[in-house]
Amino acid sequence: MKLQQSQQFTPMIPTASMADIAFLLIIFFMVTITFEVDKTQVLLPKTHIRLEVPKKAAYVSVTEQNVIKVSDGEELSNQVPGVEDVLSFASTVVASDPSKPFVLKADSNVQYDHIDKVIDALKQAKVEVIYLLSEQETVPVN
């Protein structure tokens, strides 16, 4: 009588679909990625109320050292010499799109005097809405 030889199984992890999964992840990252127009590092104030900033909004950022950068929402932000230049920049942006929202990205510790001048420049340029960029205020757990 001829005995049937037992079948030998070679241990193997199926990796054929690994590339498909990985490429799906890459596509997900590429679709969801948003490019920042303003990469200025500031310590944002914390607030409870936080509304989503519209896409393509213009940015005015003020650092703790009072460095001011502006971006029209399309191109990367550029440093401007002073507040007077914020007025001319905002006027140009508003002239092309009167309803363009502006985002004020300012450091928590900046003296309000500087912020006052920036807001005044935006008001003079007839900006309709300003968003004060903030981080989420966390509620302490008792």
Binding site: M18, A19, A22, F23, L25, I26, F29, M30, I33, T34, E36, K39, L44, T47, I49, R50, L51, E52, V53, V103, L104, L122, K123, K126, V127, E128, V129, I130, Y131, L132, L133, S134, E135, Q136
Partner: peptide, 26 residues
């Protein structure tokens, strides 16, 4: 593919895109 994923994950920065709004008078 996984090298590309690692690149994306390392270079991704989380940005604040929310804030307080206030309308300016017309």
């Amino acid at each position: 593919a996984f090298l590309l994923i690692i690149y994306f994950m390392v270079t991704t920065t989380f940005t604040a895109t929310r804030g307080l709004d206030f309308g300016l008078p017309k």
